[in-house]
Amino acid sequence: MDPSVQAGPATASADRYALVGERGLDVDLSVSGEPWGTRFDWGCSYGGKSWAADGSVMYDLVVVRDDGSVQTVASWSAAGEDARGLSASTDVQRDDIASVQVRLRGDDRVLADVDL
């Protein structure tokens, strides 16, 4: 490995958010502005509901830019009572993001969100 390349956690300080959503969805979200864009780290719980491991319930993490355009930056399937250690990134700069949302896959309704 090239010694000038360093791997590791996000270098910028992260802003932390607690999103309380519909149907018992709770999301702990960390948002870090990086030189290359924005990093997201999160975990969520499903209000005590334990989803089947068949992957039939899918969620999307969506960013809404200041201009109103949207980008799905991550997707995951619900299995068990929670999901931890999720992370994703986008080339969209932190200052250009108006809000972050969690939605059911294929549905425009917002289950949980936070304005940045």
Rank of each mutant, 00 (worst) to 15 (best):
S69G: 01
Y17A: 05
Q93P: 12
D82A: 11
R94Q: 04
D115N: 03
G37Y: 02
Q6N: 11
A10N: 11
W36I: 03
D91K: 12
A10W: 08
G47P: 04
G37R: 12
V5R: 13
G37Q: 06
W76Y: 13
S75V: 08
R103I: 06
S30G: 15
P35H: 05
V63T: 11
G55V: 08
W76C: 08
W76R: 08
Y17C: 05
D66H: 12
G48S: 08
V63K: 05
D96F: 13
A74H: 11
P3D: 12
Q93C: 06
D67G: 04
Q71A: 06
L104H: 11
S30A: 15
R39M: 11
A112L: 05
D54W: 05
P9Y: 10
G55F: 03
G24T: 07
D66K: 12
D60P: 03
P9G: 12
R105V: 05
G80R: 10
L61W: 04
L25W: 12
G80S: 07
G106V: 04
S13F: 05
T90I: 01
E34A: 05
S77L: 00
A88E: 03
V27T: 05
V92A: 01
G21R: 05
V63Y: 00
R109S: 03
V110F: 00
A53H: 10
R105M: 09
Q6D: 13
D95V: 10
R103L: 05
R39T: 14
S77F: 03
R23I: 06
